[in-house]
Nucleic acid binder design. Structure first.
Length: 578
RNA sequence: CGGGAUGUAGCGCAGCUUGGUUUAGCGCGCAGCGUUCGGGACGCUGAGGUCGGGGGUUCAAAUCCCCCCAUCCCGACCA
């Protein structure tokens, strides 16, 4: 491809709307342009990257036995009403009406359509298992689109749906998809982690998220460097780190006398730390939650920790809500409780006390006195209060320990690019999609669904792999493998060589872009770096001086010189830049 | 949906407080000519704007007032 025949509108200046590098670089390198909030055009260069990602995904899906098809982006409301999601999905779904006032939506996902297809045409266990996928545009009217392609309202996704006879068969397909997704990200060349995740509203029992590690990622994950444990922040299991009390080391096990301290207007952990001049892990916080029947629970956890309501709910198997000031006034005013001065001692006895494992070993800690403007110091368990249940109710903090191998857990951020679910029978039951099994019985399909964001991978790759000069594409998805730069296009000696190299590389099937623009070399170098082309082939001064051309690697600026006739050498370097 | 901000040439911005010497500027980019040619070169010439939209105040509005729209940020919501 000749640069002059191509279309790469690059931007020198930082676009104001871009908050993070991938967004800015997508715009600056001429990959995308915004059309409306969260809606983007893919320009030729971006489109090439998208195609490369698609090709890899398609290849791995095919290898894993999945079959490609294409479902419509527009979907009638009927199937969604049947599955119950027409009302469930809410304002995140783009809805529209046709000329005769029938309801449609722009598909945010395709479980309904694929299940309908299975209902129509998959009749027998002999057809199973089957795994169908498509690469399609999706629409979600996000409340707050942001970060360019990372949270767009129109985006491209590969989604696969599997139909199986039973759980066992589903397990196998699920494992295949797990491996396929791992291979996809390995082939693209991204650093990623697979974490156990919540299933959310899509339903199902079991799911894994594929997270591309990047500082600006929206997902927090926890992983163990010692074994292969990794998990989403919310779900992570861990052993609380040993938050030792310094005084405990001087006098092990010594329990001091409880004292009441006047702490006027000190209602936050932070202010308490400053006021009492104690480390934050000497404080035990008390948080009140209530269930739907207005039963109240007090959760105790280390001052350095946050309550994980999800875990608390799972523990009690009840839906819980935080108690606010109004609740205290409305329901608890007789008790004299004050938000900001809560503690486990002298709580009304109908309030159950649940303690986080993190406070089990603590001595002489600080709690609220259940009396306005007072805290208690030197509180000890079990001397001073009772606990109804112990459990894990908090998010992990630095210093916490792997539940499997005892190493210190590490924290990372990343971008969720893939998510695989075991759906089970949720959709096949609702949409009556059944097959005739070997035993002659009609059974609902056992389903799985597997999504991976094509356009999101593009942004995630940039987010993970860039420097101050621009994008550093991994060569598997680089829009071009190499760029030929002629420093002075007016000099026939240089352009002649460039033309020769260009045509032989093209002949070898190398995707090369030849920057034949009549412009200064600086601009060409800067653009090539911004676009992230893995290898530059430079024809200039060195050629005039000693008949050599140069190749320069984008990722480390390493340069090599060779003679122009050595095309195989150039090809070798192109392969090396992989 | 709540809070905050912005909207002036393709991009980045100034001008608005205090309405009138502004025929609306600047930098980058763009077009033409010439000089350059190893890390965003230089000179000259030029094209490009209903100042987000509508209404109002005024002799006069980019500038003051009201309404609307769009975009961005924070939060809530959603996963």
């Amino acid at each position: 491809m000749r640069y002059s025949n191509f279309f790469i509108p690059t931007l020198k200046e930082e676009p104001t709307e871009a908050e993070i590098p991938s967004h800015s670089l997508c715009l600056r390198a001429g990959l995308i342009r915004k059309v409306a909030s969260g809606i983007y055009s893919f320009l030729p260069l971006g489109f090439r990257v998208l195609r490369k990602i698609e090709d890899i995904v398609r290849d791995e899906m095919n290898k894993a036995g999945a079959i490609e098809l294409l479902l419509p982006a527009i979907q009638p409301s009927e199937l969604w009403i049947k599955s119950g999601r027409w009302s469930e999905y809410g304002p995140e779904m783009f809805r529209l009406k046709d000329r005769s006032n029938r309801d449609f939506c722009l598909g945010p996902t395709h479980e309904e359509l694929i299940t309908y297809l299975a209902y129509l045409d998959i009749k027998s266990y002999k057809d199973l298992p089957i795994n169908l996928y498509q690469i399609q545009v999706k629409f979600r009217d996000e409340i707050r689109p942001r970060y360019g392609l990372l949270r767009a309202r129109e985006f491209i996704m590969k989604d696969a749906y599997s139909f199986c006879r039973d759980e066992e068969e589903l397990d196998e397909v699920y494992k295949k998809m797990y491996r396929a997704y791992s291979r996809i990200l390995e082939r693209i060349g991204l650093n990623f982690k697979v974490v156990e995740a919540k299933t959310g509203v899509i339903g199902g029992k079991y799911s894994h998220e594929f997270i591309v590690l990047a500082k600006n990622g929206e997902e927090k994950i926890v992983y163990c460097p010692g074994c292969n444990y990794s998990s989403g922040y919310e779900l992570s299991r861990f052993v609380p780190g040993n938050n030792k009390d310094s005084r405990d080391e001087e006098k092990p096990g010594f329990e001091e006398r409880v004292g009441e301290v006047f702490t006027p207007d000190i209602t936050t952990i932070e202010s308490l730390v400053q006021f009492l001049k104690v480390p934050v892990d000497r404080i035990v916080k008390t948080i009140l939650l209530k269930d739907k029947e207005n039963n109240i629970y007090a959760f105790l956890l280390g001052g350095e920790r946050e309550l994980n309501i999800g875990k608390a709910q799972d523990f009690l198997n009840k839906e819980l809500k935080m108690i606010g000031e109004e609740d205290v006034e409305n329901n608890l005013n007789s008790t004299g409780l004050n938000i900001g001065y809560l503690g486990p001692i002298n709580l009304p006895c109908h309030i159950k006390i649940l303690a986080d494992n993190s406070i089990k070993k603590r001595k002489n800690f600080v709690v609220g006195a259940n009396k306005k403007n007072y805290h208690l110091i030197n509180v000890n368990y079990p001397r001073d209060f009772v606990v109804d249940s112990w459990g894990d109710f908090s998010y992990p903090v630095p210093g916490d320990i792997c539940i499997n191998c005892g190493s210190k857990l590490e924290f990372e951020r990343g971008i969720e690019v893939g998510h695989i679910f075991k759906l089970g029978e949720k959709y096949s039951l609702k949409l009556e999609a059944k097959f005739l099994d070997k035993d002659g019985k009609l059974k609902p399909f056992v389903m799985g669904c597997y999504g991976i964001g094509i356009s999101r991978i593009m942004a995630a790759a940039i987010e993970q792999l860039h420097d101050d000069k621009g994008i550093v594409w991994p060569s598997a998805i680089a829009p071009f493998a190499a760029e030929i730069v002629v420093t002075n296009p007016q000099d026939d000696r240089l352009t002649k060589v460039a033309e020769e190299i260009y045509s032989s590389l093209t002949g070898f099937g190398v995707e090369v872009i030849y920057d034949d623009r009549d412009t200064s070399p600086g601009i060409k170098f800067k653009d090539a770096d911004l676009m992230g082309i893995p290898l530059k082939i430079i024809i200039g001064k060195k050629f005039l001086d000693k008949g050599k051309i140069e190749v320069e690697f984008r990722k480390n600026s390493h340069k090599e010189e060779l003679i122009p006739a050595d095309i195989s050498g150039i090809v070798r370097y192109i392969n090396q830049s992989l």
